[in-house]
Amino acid sequence: MSDHAAEIVTFDNVGLRYGTEPEVLRDLSFTLFPGRFYFLTGASGAGKTSLLKLLYLAQRPSRGAIRMFGKDMITLPREQLPAFRRKLGVVFQDFRLVEHLSAFDNVALPLRVAGVRENDLAKPVRDMLEWVGLEHRIDAIPATMSGGEQQRVAIARAVIGRPALLIADEPTGNVDPDMAVKLLQLFERLNRLGTTVIVATHDINLLRQVPDSLIMRIHKGGLLDPTGALRFPPRPEPRPVDWEDDV
């Protein structure tokens, strides 16, 4: 095993520009360790979504090196990317639900893509929708759902496959505070089962909900590093991870 195996994600001097615009992300160097819970905060337009896009493999960086799951993502052939995307759970800022599919089918989508049999996926999908409080909306299509309901479907879809890395972009932006706490519990629960979590948010209250979370602050495309160390956040103390805690 290489020394990268302990890290889920490593960014090294990563920069990103859209087209010929100036860089929206610059000199990003950080590491995400397995089993940790990260918050990504920063003002609107600071570059949170852009950073997450690099993480969920929707965008290649304009410069720098990115390693994920021990593989160099820059040189990895395109055909191998789907296998990596299946290790990720993503809550998109704009939800990206398939508009002609019901809540059930949207949540089932990643499982179907991964080849899970219908018999095996029906119950977990129902249970998950019940957990996010949508048992009565199971056959509704996104157009008939409220913003908060759509967001909960998006979250259910992101966590249903128990991803190795959960990437959530403003996952509680459209729900009431109680639901926000409940959804965060879902992320924490997943985190205790071994999933590394990174949540982009403006919501300071949310940060307090997860006690030993790590906070990454981004400002005008660069990570703020209060400690002055090259990597942010600094390597955390080992934290007990209950990998064996299974459902």
Binding site: K87, R112, A114, P124, M128, W131, V159, G161, R162, L193
Partner: peptide
């Protein structure tokens, strides 16, 4: 407890 699908999930690239 939130319901989470078991670790047994097939994550191979299965054509469907």
């Amino acid at each position: 407890k939130p319901p989470l699908i078991g670790r047994s999930l097939v994550r191979d690239l299965v054509p469907f």
